[in-house]
Amino acid sequence: MTLVTDRLILRRWTDADREPFAALCADPEVMEFFPSLMDRTQCDTMVDRIMLRTEELGYGLWAMELRATGEFVGFTGLAVPSFEAHFTPAVEVGWRLARSAWGYGYATEAAIASLDDGFTRLGLESVVSMTYVHNGRSRAVMERLGMRRDEAGDFDHPLVPEGNPVRPHVLYRLTAAEWAARGTSP
């Protein structure tokens, strides 16, 4: 399956995506709100897990490339959180982009396509998104998507070690009815 927007192609991962993904995850600015940078082995393991989950579920975190150039610039899509929390089970919309792709609205554009797919093709009733409490860039994308913050849902991320400053997370939600009322499509 492939999702196409005006400027982006969201597609299954290939082995050619592994090197640029590892570079993205080794960038301190990209990974500012994550517990640590990721090495190549960790990135390859993550890509393998994404590919497997996409095969199992029929959706996932899609590799994102620019239509104009074919350049890999990150990922976006839908995923099932791999941890237990008060709001799971759930489906999450998420993204991670190379610094060179920041500031162009790609995360929002790709997330709109992913949400539209989730609410139409997959028939999801709701989607969540989460980030470190001070990650203003991701929170702005969530708000542009029409997601609303669930202050009662804020939590300490269980996969982030205790004492790590990026452990406190905010939770945002969006229902299919809210999406339909917004009238947004890619």
Rank of each mutant, 00 (worst) to 15 (best):
residue 2 T to P: 01
residue 2 T to F: 08
residue 5 T to N: 05
residue 7 R to W: 14
residue 8 L to V: 11
residue 8 L to F: 12
residue 8 L to E: 07
residue 11 R to C: 02
residue 11 R to S: 02
residue 12 R to T: 01
residue 13 W to R: 01
residue 13 W to F: 09
residue 14 T to L: 08
residue 15 D to S: 12
residue 17 D to M: 11
residue 19 E to G: 13
residue 21 F to Y: 15
residue 22 A to S: 14
residue 22 A to F: 11
residue 24 L to H: 01
residue 25 C to W: 02
residue 25 C to L: 03
residue 26 A to M: 06
residue 27 D to P: 02
residue 27 D to I: 03
residue 28 P to L: 07
residue 29 E to I: 07
residue 32 E to K: 13
residue 32 E to Y: 06
residue 33 F to A: 10
residue 34 F to A: 10
residue 35 P to F: 03
residue 35 P to S: 04
residue 36 S to I: 00
residue 37 L to V: 01
residue 39 D to I: 05
residue 40 R to K: 05
residue 44 D to Y: 01
residue 44 D to I: 01
residue 45 T to Y: 03
residue 46 M to C: 00
residue 48 D to W: 05
residue 49 R to E: 00
residue 51 M to I: 06
residue 51 M to L: 04
residue 52 L to K: 11
residue 52 L to F: 12
residue 52 L to I: 05
residue 52 L to E: 09
residue 53 R to G: 11
residue 53 R to N: 15
residue 53 R to F: 14
residue 56 E to S: 06
residue 58 G to M: 05
residue 58 G to P: 06
residue 61 L to A: 08
residue 62 W to C: 00
residue 63 A to K: 06
residue 66 L to V: 08
residue 69 T to C: 12
residue 69 T to R: 08
residue 69 T to Y: 10
residue 70 G to H: 05
residue 70 G to F: 08
residue 71 E to R: 15
residue 71 E to A: 15
residue 71 E to S: 11
residue 71 E to Q: 14
residue 72 F to D: 03
residue 73 V to N: 04
residue 73 V to K: 11
residue 76 T to R: 05
residue 77 G to T: 00
residue 77 G to A: 05
residue 77 G to N: 07
residue 78 L to K: 02
residue 79 A to R: 07
residue 82 S to E: 08
residue 82 S to D: 13
residue 83 F to E: 10
residue 85 A to F: 15
residue 87 F to L: 03
residue 88 T to C: 13
residue 93 V to C: 12
residue 94 G to Y: 15
residue 94 G to V: 13
residue 97 L to M: 15
residue 97 L to A: 14
residue 100 S to P: 02
residue 100 S to F: 07
residue 102 W to Q: 04
residue 103 G to V: 02
residue 104 Y to G: 07
residue 108 T to Q: 09
residue 108 T to A: 14
residue 109 E to T: 03
residue 110 A to G: 15
residue 111 A to H: 11
residue 112 I to Y: 05
residue 112 I to M: 04
residue 114 S to C: 15
residue 116 D to V: 01
residue 117 D to G: 09
residue 118 G to F: 08
residue 119 F to V: 04
residue 119 F to R: 03
residue 120 T to G: 09
residue 120 T to H: 15
residue 121 R to I: 04
residue 123 G to Y: 09
residue 124 L to Y: 14
residue 125 E to W: 07
residue 126 S to K: 13
residue 127 V to W: 08
residue 128 V to W: 07
residue 129 S to R: 10
residue 131 T to V: 00
residue 133 V to C: 12
residue 137 R to K: 15
residue 141 V to D: 05
residue 141 V to C: 05
residue 142 M to T: 04
residue 142 M to I: 02
residue 142 M to Y: 04
residue 145 L to R: 10
residue 151 E to F: 12
residue 153 G to N: 10
residue 154 D to M: 13
residue 155 F to Y: 12
residue 156 D to V: 00
residue 157 H to C: 10
residue 159 L to W: 03
residue 163 G to Y: 12
residue 163 G to R: 09
residue 165 P to Q: 06
residue 165 P to N: 05
residue 166 V to H: 09
residue 167 R to T: 04
residue 167 R to I: 05
residue 168 P to H: 14
residue 168 P to R: 12
residue 168 P to W: 11
residue 168 P to T: 07
residue 169 H to L: 08
residue 170 V to H: 11
residue 170 V to S: 13
residue 172 Y to T: 03
residue 172 Y to L: 07
residue 173 R to P: 02
residue 176 A to I: 12
residue 176 A to G: 11
residue 179 W to A: 00
residue 179 W to D: 01
residue 181 A to F: 04
residue 182 R to H: 06
residue 183 G to F: 09
residue 184 T to V: 12
residue 185 S to P: 00
